[in-house]
Design a binder for these strands. Structure first.
Lengths: 145, 145
DNA sequence: TTCCTAATTTAGACTTATTCTAAGCACACC
DNA sequence: GGTGTGCTTAGAATAAGTCTAAATTAGGAA
């Protein structure tokens, strides 16, 4: 089970022609487990609490390599900081205006847009919806007040 | 006509309680005329070709003040650079994968999403669609090859 | 296994976008 | 004319990310 994930990660990295280093494994493993869209800095902080350590340059090299290989996505939301995401399924995003957290929204929660609605007059190859509002956790917190 | 725009800009700035300085006028005027979503740097370069000159710090101060006042929007697309937009009408975005240009897409070109489709299970207050593809200009250019 | 080499990692210098700081201006109000 | 608040400014400071050149290592070949 856990073994499975480990093997999947190894396989994914090798499949795109990258050498599997402990640093790469650690970064991708962390991203696969996280749904928090961490920044390079957060990834670095999380990994470097325990072995194996990766330098800042390696974190960036790794993230760029994984992104170029299509194994992770880099997203920019409301500030000048890159966030990373190993969710390769097509999905939309939800940003909570209270806690600023960024959540993935599976396409099933939205469904496909009727073809005639997608940017009439534009040659659209794909689209992504960014929704804003208050996330479930913050709604609960607000109730409590 | 041109006069109108000038007055509108003056009024907008004063309406939000900001002093109207030549620098602020120049920045907002430039943004209103542009549909290119310029970066702070591009704005600075454009304005400083002629009087009145504005320092880098002022460009940033001004953009932040206008953004905080809701007179311009700051958007982050595929890199760590802020782009600005004085189009206050609700709109979506189109990014050309060839020239990387960012265009506004009026909501009419998409229409409203059926309420039941917008993020089932999320408390969505508003949403924005980012479409990707090839813009009209680049399609033409591609034909020519 | 051992060796080899290209790929990777690293520390630290560098770049770029943006913010901060402290001083000077400018105009509105007395 | 003095005074204060808000604005602009140059330049220093910060933060995210890239680059460089040297040291290390993964993974294939012998």
């Amino acid at each position: 089970m856990t073994r499975d994930i480990r093997l999947q990660i190894e396989e994914r990295v090798r499949a795109v022609g990258l050498k599997l280093t402990p640093q790469r494994f650690a970064v991708l493993d962390f991203l696969v487990r996280s749904c928090e869209h961490p920044t390079a800095d957060q990834i670095s902080a999380a990994l470097n609490r325990r072995f194996p350590r990766a330098s800042r340059a390696t974190i960036y090299n790794t993230l760029n390599a994984l992104r170029d290989a299509g194994l992770v996505h880099e997203v920019y939301m409301d500030d000048a900081v890159a966030r990373f995401d190993a969710n390769l399924d097509e999905h939309h995003h939800f940003v909570c205006r209270v806690c600023d957290r960024l959540e993935d929204v599976p396409v099933e929660a939205v469904g496909e847009l009727p073809a005639h609605q997608i940017g009439r007059g534009y040659k659209v190859e794909n689209y992504q919806i960014v929704m804003r509002g208050v996330c479930a956790a913050c709604q609960k917190r607000q109730m409590a007040d």
